[in-house]
Amino acid sequence: MAKIKGAVEVNTNRCKGCELCVVACPAKVLGMSKQVNAKGYNYACMVNPDACIGCASCGIVCPDGCISVYKVKIEN
């Protein structure tokens, strides 16, 4: 069976650290970084990248349009 693997790219300068993507992620991939961006916000990042299924829920709920989602199908 083919396996779906996803990845998330966060525009860290645009992110305001609202954490709505962390709540929306069904696979618990996202978390908040320990570093801050130029505006002083802790930005979202992938803390568990292997679990990402590329469902784009994080991107859809992101109020600032910071998140791009990528997805590949891996044939076994």
Partner: peptide
């Protein structure tokens, strides 16, 4: 390897 333009499924308009 996944983050490539051809695999993009969601981005801001």
């Amino acid at each position: 390897d996944i983050i490539k333009p051809e695999n993009l499924v969601y981005a801001k308009p």
